[in-house]
Design a protein around this nucleic acid. Structure first.
Lengths: 342, 342
DNA sequence: GTTAGCACTCTCTCTCAAAGAGTGCTAACA
DNA sequence: TGTTAGCACTCTTTGAGAGAGAGTGCTAAC
């Protein structure tokens, strides 16, 4: 356990470094923060904090910068989050208030404003496909050969895909299939579609031939489809304003991560459980992200946490502010989606 | 008109600069290319080309680099495109050959492999919404309150959107509306939906009340929706390997353009007419793109050029190679889409 | 326990000189 | 007359060295 004085010093150092991006020395610290002790004393405490692993020294005659442990301690027990400024709150609110025609627009607007207000990179993942609850299936024949499979879930997702109609199956029969599906599946999370259900389904249509069976298998397969989640990404260029990304090599390795949808999903899903989750530097599974931190939260649809929003920045990010922004956006987005889906 | 010797020298300079990214001097040129003339002669010719505007000098004692005019001349009359290597051809082909479940996958695979093979940034725009031809409309009621509007076009696009059912309209009536729409509109490009058509439509349903009219207006409005075109973007990080993007400021301004979907659309649409179009440096409408060039081509669906693919790189890009890659991908994608849509 | 003083270290910036690459001009050459 | 060799000149790049500045750790005094 750290003494109060050490805590005060650590807090001052982290705050200062977050603000200025430059190693903090004892003299500067004494001048800028009213700690009531001399630089020499601060030096002693800093040496302790260094040894304990909370601080690091880029080189002998530089000031100290927070280590990963320093950031972690700061975030867990020193940081004071405060309410967003009314101007920022309004900015966020307004972006989601205007009449939005498509659910896609809700997400893209949210992503845009989230990066603008946070001044970092923003990420929003659409509801996880498998976690959505089946509501109904419709089979809409386009002509004699093709049928549109229309899958509706509780989160407002309406997904369509075109399939071939198996020979000899009439429109009435397709309708019947859709009805059986809907009846059997309503209220079931998509990821829970087990093979036992399939058995039941097949038995209903057991009188029919192989072709139909094949059709059903393909139909169900389209439900099990993962990777339907889209990740909206905004404000990539914001990160380039940060002095730590003045090196093109660093930019490249970060962009490489941001370019891969799968990486982003993993980044956002890792922490999907808690309320507001903060992943700092080396806590990231992806080694290329060791100089970045992510603040994530889940938004809700129908009271269920179905998707994640996040803000990504350097480890030196303004955690207090970002937490406020993410928290606010989390509520805002949940509300906007609820309204959108009526 | 340039003399043969000037052409040979210009060609050598541009080729050399494309390859090495460093100003080319007369001595180096004489050594590396077998032009049969001395450095001094080359110097005289270079001075001429400089004065004519084909070359530029970063400073007095540096070699020459091609000006915008130099690149333009090179692309128009000096460049020799050659066939892609079999390895590259196979790489491109294979990416689009595997069984792809969704049309989305076709585009994203194409984008990925296009950037990998070209080693620059790749762009693919989905078919322009308004240019697609209406095939049919279906109205599928979800329950008593909501209906899914299902719009099918000739390019395989199946788009759905949820609308409220106006009070007092039965399923049978919805069906009738859909049938009238389909009958009146089949074969018409979406962008041609004029107000005269609307009059006709309204007259058919003229006996009905305001509510229905409102519904119809909204329905039609959803056809006129633009911005449905998606731009796939790949290989952003490739551009950071280029020495001209060692400056973070340059990277930032480029990424800013790439972040805006509208910018990208404009980039790709500007040149949608010709076969293979090359836009060099300052020819770009967007001033931030003055150090970049784009090679674009259109892919076809049902024999109509509906969308654009492109490769973006520095003005110093390997035009010959990129043209080959884009040309090959253009054909490949048209074929893949034809097969996909059966 | 706290503080002042001091020697020491390391980076950053500036200057300066030398090296290197390339040019333009002039005069000689075929 | 076109081509070439020679040469003085220009400009950038690189590296070394000096000095300033910031900060530390240690010691000794308060």
């Amino acid at each position: 356990m750290l003494s109060d004085r050490k805590r005060a010093i650590l807090k001052a150092i982290v705050s200062d470094y977050i603000q200025r991006a430059e190693p903090v020395g004892s003299r500067t610290l004494a001048r800028r923060y009213n700690l009531g002790i001399s630089p020499a004393t601060i030096r002693n405490e800093m040496a302790d904090l260094d040894e304990m692993g909370y601080l690091e020294q880029p080189h002998t005659s530089a000031g100290r910068i927070p280590s990963y442990m320093g950031y972690r301690y700061f975030v867990d027990s020193l940081m004071e989050t405060e309410r967003l400024s009314p101007a920022d709150e309004e900015r966020l609110t307004r972006a989601l208030q205007q009449r939005l025609s498509k659910i896609d627009t809700v997400f893209s607007q949210a992503t845009r404003v989230l990066s603008e207000v946070s001044q970092y990179v923003s990420l929003i993942m659409t509801p996880i496909f498998g976690q959505q609850v089946f509501q109904q299936l419709q089979l809409v024949p386009l002509d004699t050969h093709y049928v549109v499979v229309l899958l509706v879930t509780d989160t407002g997702l309406v997904q369509n895909r075109v399939m071939e109609i198996p020979p000899g199956v009439s429109a009435a029969e397709l309708d019947q299939i859709a009805q059986v599906f809907t009846k059997l599946l309503r209220g079931m999370p998509l990821e829970n579609l087990s093979s036992s259900f399939l058995q039941e389904l097949y038995s209903v249509f057991s009188r029919r031939n192989k072709t139909l069976q094949h059709f059903l298998v393909e139909l169900v397969a389209s439900f099990g489809y993962t990777g339907e989640e889209k990740v909206y990404l905004g404000g990539t260029t914001n990160i380039l304003k940060q002095p730590e990304f003045n090196d093109v090599e660093k930019v490249r390795s970060l962009l490489q991560v941001l370019e891969e949808r799968d990486h982003l999903c993993r980044l956002l899903m890792d922490t999907a459980s808690e309320d507001i989750a903060i992943t700092i530097g080396e806590e990231n599974k992806c080694i290329l992200m060791k100089d970045c931190s992510i603040v994530t939260a889940c938004y809700e649809i129908n009271g269920r946490r179905v998707g994640t929003i996040g803000v990504l920045g350097p480890t030196r990010m303004d955690y207090a502010r970002v937490v406020s922004v993410v928290e606010y956006m989390q509520k805002l987005l949940s509300k906007a989606l609820a309204e959108f889906l009526c």
